[in-house]
Nucleic acid binder design. Structure first.
Lengths: 226, 226
DNA sequence: ACCTGAACACCGTTCAAGT
DNA sequence: ACCTGAACACCGTTCAAGT
């Protein structure tokens, strides 16, 4: 706080882990996953590439911290509602929206199990499942099914957004293109995919995501009453 | 077939897309995802790096073809059973085992939506859901929930295997380490994760995976009867 | 203690030159 | 038509040298 006097006098802030992570997020949001390089980071922070290593361990460290900086507040803002089920829906939706706004978070979550953001999700989901009056055996399988499902959706959403961005057409246009390709598939070998193509075009991501959560919760409820 | 006479006389096969993909799979299996480079591929195929580009478009093309070469036969071998539910379980398990044997497939599936292996999975799952007497609305949400769940598990499994390999300790040891870390979490802020740590150590991946599928299927069944 | 920036050991991809 | 391998434009990471 009281150090780096010369720099702060000039109105420049000193290089900190927090500034590095913030700039990494800005880079990831604006340039996509390939936009985060130590050289770009150094340029944006007006420093040398090597200086960054004084505050972070490596690129994974930066990526993970950036991911946590999105996930943690998203989870804190969620978990509203009278019943565990309602809270689970708001938690899922909070994550969904956060990943929708920052697709690289979805990619990162799929890459780093056992890290902070991951643990926060497991805990948030698990606490609500615990409050749900389910059999002990269903506690583990239910919570992990929910987490896997959420991460699966996150990963696919992230991939769609990334491919849309890479091709410079955006996610919506990418999905539209995909739907068109599906609709032209051979009806003999791909009857289902072909029949569902139109759904892909008009579907509501958020609603479908919630429907999946409800399906799992209903499955858990069915288990309880048997 | 009749070309490349000089090479085939010497017992060497000519460079083909199939050979490239086969060697890529071998490299991915033995050296992990970072082991697949065009230089390593060229060395293994006893050719120049540039020659490979005559048969494939780019690295994504190789990765995608390799992924499909694992997924397609895995799906063909699966889909056994009397009821759609049983077939869905064998399909899921077939994929699970294939990804367990080739973790990089899990990573690749999460990276490339709308590609061949992905479409095969959607179709295989969708056909069974279609045969299951569910409401039209549940057809889409059920099939996509199942796919998202399967891909989510695949991604996490792949990440665990990759991290285990990168640290040179294997996946089991990595999970053990993770379980230990979870067991030492603060009971106040991470009560669930802490309480579930022992489960993480002793759990059966395959059984848990199936339990999640059953949960979703039960949820779909519950929907039908209401 | 913190920062600089050149250097190292890699990448994917291209392309003139060969056969 | 197919292959070679040097070259290009990058990476993440390290580290002597500076302040």
């Amino acid at each position: 706080m009281i150090k780096n006097t010369r720099r702060t006098q000039r109105g420049e802030t000193s290089l900190t882990r927090a500034r590095i992570v913030a700039e990494a997020i800005a880079l990831l949001d604006t340039k996509g996953e390939s936009g985060l390089t130590f050289r770009a980071l150094a340029a944006a922070l007006a420093t040398g590439a090597g200086a960054i290593y004084f505050h972070v361990a490596d690129k994974d460290d930066v990526l993970n911290a950036a991911c946590d900086a999105i996930v943690a507040p998203a989870l804190d803002a969620a978990a509203k509602g009278a019943t565990p089920r309602e809270r689970l829906r708001t938690i899922g939706l909070g994550l969904f929206d956060a990943i929708d706004a920052h697709p690289w978070v979805g990619t990162e979550l799929a890459r780093a199990p056992g890290t902070m953001p991951m643990m926060r999700i497991v805990e948030a989901v698990g606490q609500e499942v615990s409050a749900m009056d389910v059999a002990p055996a269903t506690l583990w399988s239910g919570a992990s099914a929910l987490c896997s499902y959420i991460l699966g959706v996150a990963g696919q959403n992230a991939a769609n957004a990334r491919l849309g961005q890479e091709r410079g057409i955006g996610r919506a246009a990418f999905l539209d293109e995909l739907a068109h390709r599906w609709s032209q598939l051979d009806a003999g070998t791909y009857p289902f995919t072909r029949s569902i193509a139109e759904q892909l075009r008009v579907h509501d991501d958020r609603a479908d995501f919630l429907a999946g959560i409800d399906l799992i919760l209903d499955g858990m409820a069915a288990r309880r009453s048997r």
